[in-house]
């Protein structure tokens, strides 16, 4: 039932955590979620850090409906990780478990653990507000706030009091530059963001998410409403965010997973079917369901 993703780690540092909790691990595919160390060879791998995000036997749903069953997964620091699968497979629910956005629904329930930096996200340390600052989120459609472009970027900075008032303009500029939007909006920072194009709005939302200096960015199909050219810009930007940030990217677009993600997890019907290095998942999937999905027979 439980499909291991993180598989058995041959590197010692992690076996402490990994050993007990991952049934059915495939020892012949060591360290699936650390492409960097795989490429470099296990011996040369940096001392294994504990994963930033991790679920263990996580089962969750809403009311009587079980959306995810026994998902065990982990994401290493500084990596880009894709979650793929057909509509309704539980990708977004899994993503939203990490920043507790599911908790907004009164009928949401969960068993098993979902951890951020070794602590269950529901444990209260960090509290939900700080958790959401450190585990940021970008949504499917651009969702700028009804305030000026500059205020949009620093909305979170202001709420968390991360910078004194006089530095807010500089913070806004820094993050607008980071997402490559500065030249386009420099002369209209006080204007409404709703006049920007969809792609620019999404970049603005990225700048807003980055401005609170998160450790993790959860991206819920961030380019599905964008044209190919803008998608390319966003993807290039995502690659620049590592290794400082850890990215978890839910996507419908297999090619996108192939372009940006080091590891990919395939969810189907609420189960984690297979996870590992993106190249392997896309080119040589092991499970029949994964094969069907990546070849376009399901989904």
């Amino acid at each position: 039932m439980t499909h291991s993703l993180a598989a058995a780690r041959t590197d010692g540092g992690n076996s402490r955590r990994a050993g007990a909790q991952i049934p059915g691990s495939r020892s012949r595919h060591p360290d699936l979620l650390s492409p960097a160390s795989t490429r470099a060879g296990v011996a040369a791998a940096p001392p294994a850090l504990p994963p930033v995000l991790k679920t263990r036997d996580a089962t969750m749903g809403f009311g009587l409906k079980t959306v995810l069953s026994s998902v065990t997964l982990e994401f290493r620091r500084g990596t880009i990780n894709a979650i793929i699968g057909p509509t309704g497979c539980g990708k977004s629910t899994l993503l939203r478990a990490f920043n507790r956005m599911n908790d907004r629904s009164p009928t949401f329930w969960r068993r098993g653990s979902v951890e951020f930096e070794g602590c269950d996200v529901s444990a209260g340390t960090p509290d939900p507000l700080e958790l959401r600052r450190r585990v940021g989120m970008v949504f499917q459609r651009p969702n700028p706030f009804p305030m000026s472009i500059r205020d949009n970027v620093v909305a979170g900075v202001r709420a968390h009091r991360l910078a004194p008032r006089r530095e807010l303009a500089a913070v806004a500029e820094r993050h607008l530059r980071q997402v490559g939007l500065w030249d386009a909006v420099a002369d209209r920072l006080d204007d409404s963001p709703f006049r920007l194009s969809g792609g620019q709005q999404q970049l603005l939302c990225l700048a807003r998410a980055l401005a609170v200096e998160p450790d993790v960015l959860l991206l819920d199909e961030p380019t599905s409403s964008l044209d190919p050219a803008t998608t390319e810009i966003v993807e290039a930007l995502l690659r620049t965010l590592t290794p400082r940030l850890t990215l978890v990217l839910v996507t419908h677009n297999l090619a996108q997973a192939g372009r940006v993600a080091g590891t990919t997890a395939f969810l189907y019907d609420g189960r984690l079917v297979e996870a590992g290095e993106t190249r392997q998942i896309l080119a040589a999937p092991r499970e029949p369901e994964t094969v069907s999905y990546v070849t376009g027979r399901i989904g």
Binding site: M101, R132, R133, G136, F139, F145, G156
Partner: peptide, 15 residues
Amino acid sequence: VPRQTVEGALALGLT
């Protein structure tokens, strides 16, 4: 008010 906009604020860690 679109749900995504409110969620955007909450996901940023706003109360």
